[in-house]
């Protein structure tokens, strides 16, 4: 069984994003990690291969710096990796999809491709769907439970108010992982050491015939979210505070 797992190199969600210029941020100043949702896909890949045999190949489109993130995915059990190297961090998802497709086809189409449900930096929520269409295979996203039975995958996805859909598809296909699917493992020291020796195939984006500037969704501006300047603290006894709050919400803010 061959499994590809698409992993994006993203700033840690706890990292402070320091803006630089109109569209950029200081990426040298924050810690980068495996996109948290991709980590569920990675864990699932590794445990499937542990059970059924085969290999797990990480595919990443990103800057050179993504190598560190790839190494941490390898420490979790991925066997090898392909890094399609870009100059910038923001890449239109249709271009990302082209790069992923070219890299995956070049390597040989796998039985399953895992992605996350979305990336926590650009929050595009679409790359996996584009990749499925480009490869002509099915996709199910936001998967929190999975059973693979031969060439059939049966999955559950949460669709709101605790409601769940049971969905099936024929493999090869793409599965977008989300929380609930598993608990990603913590790599042990020997695994971290072993990961240093695993192979990473680096392919410049231009070698795949893709122009980094050709994206059709363009980031015009990146700005800090307006922050609330601090709460108006209510005073008095509990009853007084609550009475004030209700009055404000009804009369001033008109939200209830």
């Amino acid at each position: 069984m061959k499994i590809c797992v698409c992993i994006k190199h993203v700033p840690d969600t706890a990292a402070n994003i320091k803006l630089a210029g109109e569209q950029g941020f200081e990426d040298s100043e924050c810690k980068f990690v495996v996109n948290p949702y991709d980590e569920y896909g990675l864990e699932e890949s590794v445990s499937l291969v542990e059970k059924n045999g085969g290999e797990v190949v990480v595919v990443t489109v990103g800057k050179e710096a993504a190598t560190a993130t790839i190494r941490s995915a390898m420490a979790m059990g991925a066997h090898r990796a392909i890094l399609v190297k870009t100059e910038g961090q923001f890449l239109d998802s249709a271009l990302t999809c082209k790069a992923l497709k070219a890299a995956i086809e070049k390597d040989g189409t796998p039985d399953i491709i895992f992605t996350g449900k979305g990336s926590v930096d650009t929050e595009g929520f679409q790359t996996q769907y584009r990749l499925a269409a480009a490869l002509g295979i099915p996709v199910v996203n936001e998967v929190s439970k999975l059973t693979v039975d031969g060439s059939k995958a049966v999955m559950e996805r949460e669709t709101g108010s605790g409601e769940r859909e049971v969905v099936e598809m024929t493999l090869p296909g793409i599965i977008g992982a989300t929380k609930g699917l598993n608990e990603p493992r913590y790599p042990k020291f020997p695994d971290i050491m072993k990961a240093k020796k695993k192979p990473i195939d680096v392919i410049p984006l231009s070698d795949l015939g893709i122009d980094e500037g050709a994206g059709k969704s363009v980031l015009v501006k990146l700005e800090a979210t307006p922050e609330r300047s601090g709460a108006k603290m209510l005073e008095g006894s509990v009853t007084e505070q609550v009475a004030q709050l209700v009055k404000i919400l009804k009369e001033e803010e008109k939200v209830i």
């Binding site: 700033p11 994003i17 650009t122 363009v218 015009v220 990146l222 979210t225």
Partner: peptide, 19 residues
């Protein structure tokens, strides 16, 4: 164009589509 969150709500991104 549309305005959306990037980086888990820490920033707002304005995205323009060539579509």
């Amino acid at each position: 164009t549309g305005v959306k969150s990037h980086f888990s709500g820490k920033t707002f991104a304005t995205i323009k589509l060539d579509c």
